[in-house]
């Protein structure tokens, strides 16, 4: 593939730049869903959230207990998922897990490491780790990653649909550069970009998808290696905020399907107002 798709995508923007909640006001039809109904008292208790990333550091003070850790490794027959105690190869997965824990303090956290060491590129390892996570039946999968490799798109699409029907919600990060990548572009996942507001609890629905939600992703304080914290910026860190919100909703309403969950997020977003029905 040559570089032309990147040129074509140069005008694309996967974040809310230079605009605030008032610029993306949405009037929606539907039964009113009060944020209190969706979130209040929802701590994530009993909800299994899996971070598919570079691993998660165990015992980090901002993360606490990690219920299970696995890594994709290269075996003779191809990538395999094995129990792993290797922790985090770079800190990125730890940062995501810390944000999920902040939002949904009582959720069960799990980790599948698909990046690091000799992993070249995100395709094969990402596919293997994500497929495994979907088939374990986790309630929420945080995927602050994507692949630009078009040859994985169809397989990822099928996997995202499989997750959707299994009631495993994949919360996927939009790419930080104006390039085409997957699986965040698929309608069966919940895709996330960053807004520039200071409110650490604000999230917005995007009336002009493919990115469906914007969450705090600028100057975020996040857990890092060695029990420390850093400050960082990017869609990677907006995504676990929404994953944590999913865990909160599901801990209150465990029978929600994936489409109901997405609708709940939509109707509860700060910029969405429920109309009175009829023509706009």
């Amino acid at each position: 593939m040559n570089a032309s798709p990147r040129r074509t995508a140069a005008r694309l923007n996967w974040n809310l730049r230079g605009r605030g909640p008032g610029d993306v006001a949405v009037v929606a039809d539907g039964e009113p869903v009060a944020p209190a109904w969706a979130f209040d008292g929802g701590t994530g208790r009993g909800v299994r959230v899996c971070v598919v990333d570079s691993g998660v550091e165990h015992g980090h003070p901002l993360i606490g207990r990690v219920e299970g850790s696995w890594a994709v490794v290269t075996a003779e027959t191809g990538p395999e998922v094995r129990v792993s105690s290797d922790g985090d190869a770079c800190g990125h997965g730890t940062a995501c897990a810390g944000i999920i824990r902040r939002v949904a303090p009582e959720c069960e956290l799990y980790s599948v490491r698909v990046l690091g060491e000799r992993f070249t590129g995100t395709g094969d390892m990402l596919m293997a780790g994500l497929r495994w996570a979907v088939r374990q039946g986790f309630d929420v999968i945080n995927l602050s990653l994507s692949t630009t490799r078009a040859r994985f798109a169809a397989e990822l699409h099928a996997l995202a649909d499989e997750a959707y029907f299994r009631r495993t919600v994949i919360v996927a990060s939009a790419h930080n550069m104006p390039v085409e990548s997957f699986p965040w572009r698929f309608a069966s996942v919940i895709s996330v970009g960053s807004h520039q507001e200071d409110d650490p609890d604000l999230y917005l629905y995007n009336p002009a998808p493919p990115v469906e939600f914007f969450a705090p992703g600028q100057n975020v304080t996040a857990a890092w290696l060695g029990g420390t914290t850093i400050r960082t910026t990017g869609n990677s860190f907006a995504t676990p905020f929404i994953a944590g919100q999913c865990a909160r909703v599901l801990s209150k309403h465990p029978r929600l399907t994936t489409f109901q969950l997405k609708n709940t997020l939509y109707l509860s977003a700060a910029n969405v107002r429920i109309g009175t029905g009829g023509a706009p």
Binding site: S54, G116, N176, M177, T228, T229
Partner: peptide
């Protein structure tokens, strides 16, 4: 395979990290 540059290589994503001075490892 490790560190921020390693993550950038394997993820294909940019990354910005601040306050590393507090980081021991």
């Amino acid at each position: 395979g490790r560190g921020i540059a390693g993550w950038v290589v394997s993820s294909g994503e940019p990354m910005v990290v601040d306050d590393l001075a507090h980081n021991a490892v």
